[in-house]
Nucleic acid binder design. Structure first.
Ligand SMILES: [Mn+2]
Ligand SMILES: [Mn+2]
Ligand SMILES: [Zn+2]
Ligand SMILES: [Zn+2]
Lengths: 142, 142
DNA sequence: CGTTGTTTTGCAACAGCGTTGCTTTTATGT
DNA sequence: ACATAAAAGCAACGCTGTTGCAAAACAACG
């Protein structure tokens, strides 16, 4: 398992044009081994003092830049990240699914099977990106 | 003009159960005299050193609590606030419109005339709130 | 009005988040 | 194995938001 995922991480990193380092593998593994989204603080907590705070910030930033993960807007001013699904690449993200934030467990999930509905804006607005965040109670917390 | 709006502010504050102070009037006036949303930093900039940073934070918080303004989630980790439309009151917000963030001028607008589309989630999720943020280019920036 | 009890403000201090510059260490390609 | 480019670690910094407490302002009432 661990070995298989380790391999998957390495392949993913290479496929996205990132050199392979210990920190990147470990952080990517966290995303792969977890359903929900992760904030910087979660990663720091899980990895302990293994890597510097700054390294984690820069790793997350490079992952976003290269299309490995995407960030999720929330009301509480905390940036969360989740894995992208295949089609994303350097410079161009294509995450057209909605996000769910559970008020009980405070986890954030990508609902990949639910597309963001299209929306009709008044004349004069050009649409670039649509973000939809639903909050409520998740399956596990009912 | 200034007098009329001044009066409107006072009425709004009283109607929402807030005592009337200089800071609250001034900050509410900013929201009334402006189409777009405001972040804490915007307010601090506009009012100069007139009020303490902390006062502005607490004022915004009380406005949210009492249903005068609502916060808007964004990807860049900055909380923006905009006036609520009548129906909101202490404890219960009813802002079911979508928000637009312009990539050029960086302004945020409430599109009151565009309702958040309803969304069908997989079984097991309970929906509490739906937030929709569209980014692109606004009317003035085309 | 003026007094009084309550609420708000200002100030100071603090914690957390995120960034930057620089040096050392590590990865990559030959 | 070596040279070069990239990433990590460290220290310092600025910005955002919070808290406790004392002073000031407000609201209610006589
Ligand atoms: Mn997602
Ligand atoms: Mn709004
Ligand atoms: Zn949950
Ligand atoms: Zn604009």
């Amino acid at each position: 398992m661990a070995t298989a995922r380790q391999k998957e991480s390495v392949e993913l990193l290479k496929a996205h044009g990132l050199s392979v380092t210990g920190g990147r593998k470990d952080i990517l593994n966290l995303f792969l081994s977890r359903k929900g989204a992760l904030a910087h603080a979660d990663i720091e907590k899980k990895l302990g003092t293994l890597y510097d705070r700054v390294t984690i910030y820069r790793t997350l930033q490079s992952f976003v830049d290269k299309g490995l993960i995407h960030s999720i807007p929330t009301k509480d001013n905390s940036i969360r990240y989740a894995l992208c699904k295949d089609e994303c690449a350097s410079g161009h993200h294509h995450d057209h699914h909605i996000h769910f934030v559970c008020k009980r467990c405070n986890h954030t999930y990508c609902l990949d099977e639910v597309a963001t509905p299209s929306v009709k804006l008044p004349k004069g607005y050009t649409v670039n990106q649509v973000e939809m965040v639903v909050s409520g109670v998740c399956q596990s917390c009912q």
